[in-house]
Amino acid sequence: MQITRRGFLTLSGAVGGGIALSSLGLNLKPTQAYAEELDKMGRMKVAKQSTTICAYCSCGCGLVCSVDKATGKIFNIEGDADHPINEGSLCAKGAGFFDLTEANKHRLTKVLYRAPYATEWEEKDWDFAISRIARLIKKTRDKDFITKNAKGELVNRCESIGHYGSSNVDNEECWLMVAKSRALGMVYIDHQARV
């Protein structure tokens, strides 16, 4: 990747600041940051790059993710300069996109389960969660299923299970959730479009 004019200005600002401060015997962090940035620029040259779309408002701004080929990890995310809507720019949230990756220690990484009346979560595996959830769906649905309504009309619905979300998952995922919910007979289906 070529160093852009904006990137150059950022780097030259960082190096200037670093020299000024270290010569006064002060903070060396900016120089270290500069070294890290230089390293990052080097890494980006050989990185696998792929595009994505921002996960916040609905402008649909483009971003570019750089992935270290050796580790498979994302190490940089920035605005997509070729994207006609944002032309490389991002707002504060988009600019902080990297903090959504696994570098953020708050990311959920395990299946968590909280038994009735328990005071803590416990870690479980997918097989446990999927089979237990499927069983709970069937139990609730079969117990409360409404084949005919008060007027005797065929309604084939389940009013005791609700679904909410989400407008921050992909179209294909949204569609699957609706197909699943309707096949189960659910009617309490809603999401952020109404918020």
């Binding site: 990311r107 968590l112 009735p116 979560w121 969660a129």
Partner: peptide, 13 residues
């Protein structure tokens, strides 16, 4: 009494 599951999801990218 609620039995709760919290399933870890992939982020958009």
């Amino acid at each position: 009494k609620t039995e709760c599951f919290l399933l870890p999801a992939a982020a958009t990218m």
